[in-house]
Computed example of a mutant assay.
Amino acid sequence: MDLFSHTWTALRKAVDALSDEDLEQPSGCQGWLVRDLVCHLVIDAQDVLITLVTPADTEPTVDAVTYWRLGEPPTGEDPLDALIVRLAAAYEEPWLLKFHLDDVGSAAGRAAELADPTARVSTRDMVLTAGDYLSAYVVEWTLHHLDLIAHLPDATGPIAEGLSYSRTTLETLAGAPFPRSFSDTDALLVGTGRRTPTDAERAELGALAAKLPLVLS
């Protein structure tokens, strides 16, 4: 629960520090500018609020790891992705987008702090504990924090604890650890297809390379 709060706070602080020019830079998400990614984070925050007040009375069907489904790499043609771009463009003043994220994001953070981690909630036809749901979102915040700063070298990156937790989750999904020579950041970027491995990295990955990328959805 604390890690959710810490990673979410770090991500929102990074967004708050962005200039208007930063928002117009490419993000690490194919086809999205940074402003589009920030708009997506508003939707994510809304999802957190909705899920935490959607109780379930059946046994959990997934946990913090199996919550993630593995899909195909994005093509930039998904209708929802295109909708996000249009929504982001509707914020004619960049500060309005940042204000909306701060407003809804703060509420999501407070809701997470107040949630009973053992309570069962429902989302996307799945049932899991609130604690597992919020733990899954540590990965979401960490990966999107990396996306946020992909072309902003001076921006503050994700916290170390979030990177480590996300790496462990990815390794569990992959069924194998990444080489020790890989930093947590490199493991996440290469593992999720956000960066192509070098020839040397591919050799180190060995059989694991054939399983990559792991596209989380």
Score class of each variant (00 low, 15 high):
Ala187Pro: 05
Ser181Gly: 10
Glu24Phe: 09
Lys211Arg: 14
Arg86Trp: 11
Asp47Leu: 15
Val34Gln: 08
Ala111Glu: 07
His6Thr: 14
Gly71Glu: 04
Asp44Ile: 11
Leu128Gln: 03
Val85Met: 15
Ser27Phe: 10
Val65Lys: 01
Ser5Asn: 13
Glu92Pro: 01
Thr142Leu: 06
Ile149Met: 01
Met126Arg: 14
Thr66Val: 13
Pro177Asn: 06
Ala89Pro: 13
Val215Asp: 03
His100Tyr: 03
Asp57Pro: 00
Asp184Val: 01
His100Gly: 04
Thr51Arg: 07
Leu205Trp: 08
Thr66Trp: 04
Ala112Leu: 04
Thr54Asn: 09
Trp141Val: 15
Ile159Tyr: 04
Ala107Val: 05
Val53Thr: 13
Asp78Ala: 15
Glu113Leu: 13
Gly76Lys: 00
Arg120Lys: 11
Ser164Phe: 09
His40Glu: 07
Glu171Arg: 05
Leu41Asp: 04
Arg195Asp: 03
Pro117Gly: 05
Thr192Tyr: 05
Thr156Glu: 08
Leu170Val: 03
Ala45Asp: 08
Arg12Gly: 03
Ala107Asn: 06
Thr75Gly: 14
Val139Pro: 01
Tyr137His: 13
His100Thr: 14
Arg120Trp: 08
Gly28Trp: 01
Gly31Ala: 10
Ala176His: 12
Leu216Thr: 02
Val138Pro: 02
Leu33Gln: 15
Gly105Trp: 12
Leu3Asp: 01
Leu188Ser: 09
Asp147Arg: 02
Pro26Thr: 09
Glu59Arg: 12
Leu189Thr: 01
Ala89Leu: 12
Thr185Asp: 07
Ala200Tyr: 08
Gly157Arg: 02
Glu93Leu: 12
Leu49Asn: 00
Trp141Glu: 10
Leu208Pro: 08
Val42Tyr: 02
Ser5Glu: 13
Arg110Asp: 15
His145Tyr: 02
Val38Arg: 02
Arg194Gln: 07
Gly193Arg: 02
Pro179Phe: 15
Ile43Cys: 10
Ile43Glu: 11
Lys98Gly: 03
Pro117Phe: 04
Gly105Met: 08
Gly71Met: 02
Leu148Met: 11
Ala89Cys: 13
Ser106Gly: 15
Val15Thr: 10
Phe178Asp: 07
Thr156Lys: 07
Val62Glu: 09
Ala130Asp: 03
Gln30Glu: 12
Cys39Phe: 09
Lys98Ser: 08
Ser135Met: 06
Leu49Asp: 05
Thr9Pro: 00
Leu173Asp: 06
Ala90Arg: 12
Arg202Met: 08
Leu41Trp: 06
Glu24Leu: 14
Leu146Ser: 05
Ala174Met: 11
Thr196Gln: 15
Met126Gln: 15
Leu23Tyr: 07
Pro73Ile: 11
Leu163Glu: 08
Thr142Arg: 05
Arg110Thr: 14
Pro117Cys: 06
His151Met: 10
Arg69Trp: 10
Val48Met: 13
Arg120Cys: 08
Leu41Met: 15
Ala160Asp: 13
Met1Pro: 03
Ala108Gly: 04
Pro158Gln: 04
